[in-house]
Amino acid sequence: TGIVNVSSSLNVRSSASTSSKVIGSLSGNTKVTIVGEEGAFYKIEYKGSHGYVAAEYI
């Protein structure tokens, strides 16, 4: 489990890349469940599926 540490919002992406499609966003202080790690990204549970967020902001 981690907490989103941004002042505005954090993009949730379809894969572990900044060039991948943005599938949603999370606001600051949102609690997320981390299920894996790929490079600089965490794989998280997101809306019944999975998404990827930049690990530096969690």
Rank of each mutant, 00 (worst) to 15 (best):
T1A: 10
G2M: 08
I3K: 07
V4L: 05
V4M: 04
N5P: 04
N5M: 12
N5E: 06
N5H: 09
N5W: 10
N5Y: 08
V6I: 13
V6S: 12
V6D: 06
S7A: 12
S8R: 10
S8Y: 14
S9V: 11
L10S: 04
N11M: 14
N11L: 15
V12M: 01
V12E: 01
V12F: 01
V12I: 07
V12W: 02
R13K: 08
R13S: 08
R13L: 15
S14L: 13
S14C: 14
S14W: 08
S15E: 15
A16Q: 03
S17V: 05
S17M: 07
T18H: 15
S19M: 10
S19Y: 10
S19D: 14
S20T: 06
K21N: 11
K21E: 13
V22E: 04
I23P: 01
I23R: 02
I23Q: 03
G24Q: 03
S25Y: 14
S25V: 15
S25R: 13
L26I: 12
L26F: 04
L26V: 10
L26S: 01
S27H: 11
S27F: 10
S27I: 11
S27D: 12
G28A: 14
G28C: 12
N29L: 10
N29G: 15
T30L: 06
T30R: 06
K31Q: 12
V32K: 00
T33Q: 09
T33D: 05
I34Y: 02
I34L: 05
I34N: 01
V35F: 06
V35D: 02
G36Y: 05
G36A: 10
G36N: 06
G36V: 04
E37P: 05
E38M: 08
E38W: 07
G39A: 06
G39K: 06
A40K: 10
A40L: 11
F41Q: 02
F41K: 01
Y42G: 01
Y42I: 06
K43Q: 06
K43G: 01
I44Q: 01
I44R: 00
E45R: 08
E45Y: 08
E45P: 04
Y46K: 00
Y46T: 00
Y46V: 02
Y46C: 03
K47T: 04
G48T: 07
G48M: 06
G48R: 04
G48S: 07
S49R: 11
S49A: 13
H50L: 09
H50W: 15
G51L: 02
G51M: 02
G51C: 03
G51F: 03
Y52I: 00
Y52Q: 00
Y52S: 00
Y52A: 00
Y52H: 01
Y52R: 00
V53A: 04
V53H: 00
V53I: 08
V53R: 00
V53M: 02
A54W: 14
A55Y: 06
E56P: 05
E56K: 13
E56L: 10
Y57T: 05
Y57C: 15
Y57D: 08
Y57S: 09
Y57L: 07
I58R: 00
I58T: 02
I58S: 01
